[in-house]
C-alpha cells in the first residue's frame, strides 16, 4: 500500500513556480552536505523557485532560496520536498 505524500520534490517545480519547502530528507545526505544545504538557506518554510535548468539534459538546476541562488544537481534536489 502506498500513501501519496502531500509533497513533491523541488525538481518537479516548473520554472518560475514559487513554493515553500516542506521537508528535507537530511538522512539521505552526508552530514556535511546537509549542513551546507542549511547554511545556504535551505530550511523548512523557506520559499524556493527554480530559475534555470542547465543545457544538455537540464542538470544541474539553479534554485532561488530566499535571496540566494544556489546551483545543485537534480539527484540532490529530489531530497528537498516542497508543499504541493
Amino acid at each position: 500500500m502506498t500513501v501519496s505524500a502531500p509533497h513533491r520534490p523541488i525538481d518537479a517545480l516548473a520554472i518560475g513556480e514559487v513554493a515553500l519547502i516542506a521537508a528535507i530528507d537530511r538522512a539521505g545526505l552526508a552530514p556535511d552536505t546537509a549542513q551546507r544545504l542549511c547554511e545556504l538557506g535551505f530550511d523548512e518554510g523557506v520559499d524556493v523557485e527554480i530559475l534555470h535548468r542547465a543545457p544538455f539534459g537540464g542538470d544541474p538546476i539553479a534554485v532561488r532560496v530566499g535571496n540566494m541562488v544556489v546551483a545543485l544537481r537534480r539527484d540532490m534536489a529530489r531530497l528537498i520536498e516542497v508543499e504541493a
Binding site: L29, A30, T33, R36, L37, L40, P60, A62, M68, V69, V70, A71, L72, R73, M76
Partner: peptide, 8 residues
C-alpha cells in the same frame, strides 16, 4: 561528490 554552489 555533491555539487552545491552559490551563484552570486
Amino acid at each position: 561528490p555533491p555539487f552545491l554552489m552559490e551563484m552570486p
